[in-house]
Design a binder for these strands. Structure first.
Lengths: 235, 235
DNA sequence: TACCGAGTCGAACGAACGTTCGGTAGATTA
DNA sequence: TAATCTACCGAACGTTCGTTCGACTCGGTA
């Protein structure tokens, strides 16, 4: 639920113009301070994700975040430069974590079908475990403009590309013919739509859902790649 | 593109507290005035849909609408009571028109598979012909609260129900077993996601897209309803 | 002729917005 | 001990928001 690690921060431009001092202080003290800063920031991002999820980015106010976190309005700006950067940090961290998890999981699956199922399962498990950040990622898809928007869109393209390649592998292995673009986007539609309807009290959990949706999708592209026109009768 | 008819207005509570006079004026003059009012309102709703589509409901301002329509800020409120009602009118009209079109089309299709294909085709054709209103409908799905929200949600449930019943018929006719709820929601995900990626210069038109997505979806639920576990090998 | 309602407008209302400024307490460094 | 830096705050800044008010014109009605 919480954005519990910001390990990605060091590789990008420092947040809020906060300079990374190069020679002052002992390394230990420095790390301690930075990790304290990061932990506080991560907690703020978690609150922000919940608020953006509930009221939408435009509908949410910095005063909402101030109220939710107990920190003063001005104090918040110690941790980020603007409301827009807040959204950027949430989206970027969410996307990068999903991709990182996915890459890890894909290492232990070689069968093309299995790899697509891993993709779906990873996406769904992350979505269910981080509902709020995930809705912010999907729903505020074209909210960010300029550099921040460009950067997040680049990560999105990367994620798209991974799925596209998995589908091409599957297609090649089975000798099928179908539009990978349409297939990827249909799959994304199915799995990104879930946040609008999933109710943990009546709907299956991530694993079961991933299996069922994987079945629908894979049978769909499989049979569609082989035959044309009408769906075969069952008897 | 434009919300070109508001034929639904007479059956609901009058917009903006505007009373329907009962005895004053000749009937012809009355009709003329009302239709003039409706035409102007419909034009405003078209502009509003475009603006809500571009900037989101919360991000759009009444001043944006004033600028786009050339009407003064105060003048707008002659046609509706509030910004919220504006969104309500757009969503309601869009939903009711889709359902009306669908009911008409379904009358000339009796085969269960064919009827599902009609559903998909209707949805996609309307979406492509009314991109802006459609995005507002999908994207601002849970923006409306209270009475307006309740009413739109009721129409949405009706639309869901139609699709659900079509799927049950298909299931019964083919003797299949699968979760209709999951199938409907997967299908909705596929077709409601389109607005995020469709590019008329590179992607197929509504008819072709409806056929391809229909193939994927129908093969998906068909084979999934018959077999379990792994996808059959193609050789 | 007097009147009325539809349609439209400029100007303003109070509230809320994102952000900034000047400061302070306390820990760390020189 | 003096200087510096981190973390935070109250109070305000200027702007924009949705909405309202009073007034005006104008075609149709009594």
């Amino acid at each position: 639920m919480a954005l519990d690690s910001l390990a990605t921060r060091p590789v990008v431009a420092p947040v809020n113009g906060r300079k990374l001092r190069e020679v002052s202080g002992s390394k230990n003290t420095q790390d301690l301070r930075d990790s304290r800063f990061d932990r506080r920031l991560a907690k703020l991002l978690g609150h922000a994700a919940r608020i953006f999820c509930e009221k939408g980015y435009e509908g949410a106010s910095m005063r909402d975040l101030s109220r939710a976190t107990g920190m003063s309005l001005a104090g918040l700006y110690h941790y980020f430069a603007s409301k827009e950067e807040l959204l950027y940090l949430i989206q970027k961290h969410t996307f990068l974590t999903i991709i990182e998890d996915l890459r890890e999981r894909l290492q232990s699956a070689s069968d093309p079908e299995e790899r697509i199922r891993v993709f779906i399962e990873n996406h769904l498990e992350y979505s269910m475990a981080n509902k709020e950040a995930m809705k912010v990622l999907v729903h505020e898809d074209d909210t960010l403009k300029n550099e921040h928007g460009t950067e997040v869109r680049a990560i999105k393209r990367e994620y798209y590309r991974i799925c596209f390649d998995l589908l091409e592998d599957f297609q090649r292995a089975r000798g099928l013919q179908f539009s990978c673009r349409l297939a990827v986007l249909s799959l994304f539609g199915m799995i990104n739509w879930i946040y609008t309807w999933h109710n943990p009290r009546v709907d299956a959990n991530a694993g079961a859902l991933a299996r069922e949706m994987g079945d629908i999708f894979l049978h769909g592209v499989l049979n569609n790649g082989r035959t044309k026109t009408k769906v075969a009768r069952s008897k």
